[in-house]
Each structure stands twice: as C-alpha cells, then as structure tokens.
Simulated assay, not measured.
Amino acid sequence: MRNIVIGLVIGLVIGVVLGVTILTPKIKTHAASKAVLSERDLEKGSSVTPAVLASLQQGDAIHWRSAPPFPSDRPNVAIQAREFAKQLQILSGEKMILPVLPAKDVIASDRLFAAVALGRIDALFATADIAVDKEPALSLFSAIPFGPKPEETLAWLQAGNGVKRLREILSAHNLHPLVCGFLPAESSGWFVKEFNSSEDIQNLRIRISGLGAKVWAKAGAVVSPITPEEVMGAFDQDKLDGAVFSSPEMDAKSDYRRFAQNYYYPGWQNQGQPLLLLINAKTWKKLDQERKSLLKTSCDQHTALSHAKAAQKQIDGLGELAKQDVKLQKLPAYILEPLKDAWNDVLAEEARRNQTFRETWEDLNSFLKTRQTWQEMSELGKERDEY
C-alpha cells in the first residue's frame, strides 16, 4: 500500500511538471526588448540600431525599451503614462510591458525623438510639441491658443482627419502615433502683481512655452525660455513677473505661490491637449494584429477616462489653492483681447511660413465649423433653465 501511495505522489509530481513545461504554452520575455534607454546610450551615437523584436513569436511577452516621458518636467504627463502602462500590463496578461522610468535627468527632446525614430527605443510617451522644431504643424496637436474645447479636439482626432494627418506627419520620421490620454486645460499662470490695464502686458517677464509664448511675445511681453525647475530661482532673484506651469491639480502641488500669489484663469494658451504614445514604425509593424488592437483599444479607453476624470481633479486642485490663500482671478478682457489679436497675427505668420501647418489648421477649422452647425441645433441654451 505504501509503495502505491508513493507511486501516485511521484506520478502526480511528474504530471504537473510535464503540464507546466511541455503541455502549457510558455509565455517568454523577448530577450532583445529588455533593455531601457539611458543617457549613456544616447552618448554612443546612432550609427547602430538594435534589432527591434526581430524574432517575436506568438505568445512572447513584450517588454518594450522605453525612456522617461516627455516633457519630463511636466508631472501630469508622467502620471498618465504610469497609469496607462499599469492598465496595459493587466489587460494583456503581462504580455505587454511598457516601463515608465523616473526622469532623474532631463533628456533633451530632440535626443528622445531621434531615439524612438531610429529604433534605439521602442516607444515614448510624449506631447506633440516634442518635435515642433522639425514639424511646426505638430503644434496644432498640442496646446492651441484660444483653441477648441477638449471634446472638439478629440472629435477632430478620432472622427475627423486629425489622427490621419498626425500619422502622415510622423510617418516621415519612422513613427506610428497613438492618441493615448488627454491632458487638462492649464491656468493662465502665476503672477507677482495683479493686472490693472492692458499696459501691464508690455515688458512683462513671463515663463511660458509653445505657441502661447509666441503670442505673449507678439503682444509685447518678454518671454523667458527657462525650465520649470528654474522658475523658483528666477522669481526669487526678481527675474520673472509671471509663469505658466500646469493645470490647477498640478499647480496646487507647486511652490510658486511663495513668490506669485495671483493665479489667473482661464488657460487661453492651452485648453487641453492629447498625450501621444509614439511607437517606432518597425516595432509597430512587427506586432501581430491582436497586440495592435490591444494597444489601440487600451489607448482609446485611457483617453476617454483621463478626459472624464480631469474636471473633478481640477476642482479639487482649485480647492487646495484656495486653502493656500492664493488669489484666484479671472483674466480681465483688457488682457485677453490684446492676446487674442496677437494670436491671430501669430497664426497668420505660422500659416504663411509652413504649408503643412496651414493645411492642418484649415482642416481643423473646417471640421469645427461643420460641427458647430449640429451643436447649435442640438444643445440647450436658455431653455435649459426652464426645466
């Protein structure tokens, strides 16, 4: 009897081992995709491009080479990137791993862009302005002054020609972009003094980036190109009169209030912008259809959720700012109107300077006009108050 029991136990053990090692399909990590980008890698030059998922087999777990999100000095970009990476890992049953590394050092945007374009890394979370110096039209997929509402931007991207045009622009750089999140509207910024007249714009020293920086400069301000990390020192040394950082949720966690307690809204220079997952084109092509669909669906879901949650997070942020004795103020018309005039001038200049920018703007503007017809027919105006 004892020998029978021992035999059964041995047989059970052997069966489990065989089932795990032979009968059950193995999920293995693709060895060539384990490495992540480091600053040292960028110093090596770009003459040698590693084979990207060259021997990918059905069922292999993909651990993509990645880098800190761009811009690494914008915390809400990193937060959304981490949230998506965690969601993707769970939904894929850990068959797709996208590491999001902490930004210990700020790596220049052109170096990151080149790294993913050349295949030195597989993917990168970024805002479209990562390569605006190479493709000016990308600014129209980023923060647009006096731009469309978030739902209008998303509609153009997904129901209009937005994503199609984005892919056409980035395909020339060996990239396949996915809209993979949405960043909320910013504030107008932090200012040392209150605005009292339109003359306050002249020679105002302000830190801001993107098209908004060109608008402030056109209106007569002096734009400082410093990074957010340098803003506190500039305020302390009386080298700045104002600075734009982020949305209320993120602004409430900053220390800008120590030097600039006038917090103005709305964020005319940034009404919200998409977050992109930039994928090396060769990497994308080597994925099977299941993984492509998984990535696209996961990004769509994350975009919808991030947009839906944004408003409440900003309300909470405003509450925190109020507790910090920050003066919440609406930017007066005598400031907004000159800025709007300056934006029209900047827009005309950019359109004349670059054909792709002009065609992209015309497409977006045409879409918004067509959409406006339905909005006027379907939305409640004063009638809403009657119910």
Results as ranks from 00 to 15, higher is better:
241 D>S: 10
92 S>I: 11
289 Q>F: 12
163 V>F: 00
376 E>T: 10
320 E>F: 09
261 Q>V: 07
332 P>A: 01
204 L>Q: 05
265 Y>L: 10
324 Q>H: 08
52 V>P: 02
271 Q>L: 13
202 Q>K: 15
100 V>T: 01
159 A>F: 01
151 E>D: 14
255 D>A: 14
3 N>Y: 13
224 S>V: 13
352 R>I: 10
222 V>E: 13
242 G>A: 07
85 A>V: 09
161 N>A: 05
278 L>Q: 07
20 V>I: 13
234 A>S: 11
98 L>Y: 07
213 A>G: 10
83 E>F: 11
39 E>V: 13
273 Q>F: 09
9 V>T: 12
246 S>N: 08
29 T>E: 15
21 T>I: 06
85 A>W: 04
181 G>E: 01
121 I>R: 07
81 A>F: 02
5 V>G: 03
23 L>W: 15
82 R>W: 09
209 S>H: 12
84 F>C: 03
265 Y>H: 09
119 G>K: 08
243 A>K: 00
181 G>V: 01
383 E>S: 12
143 A>D: 07
371 R>Y: 02
296 K>G: 04
52 V>T: 15
98 L>R: 05
202 Q>Y: 10
181 G>Y: 00
133 D>N: 13
288 D>P: 01
318 L>K: 07
63 H>I: 03
9 V>M: 11
342 A>C: 02
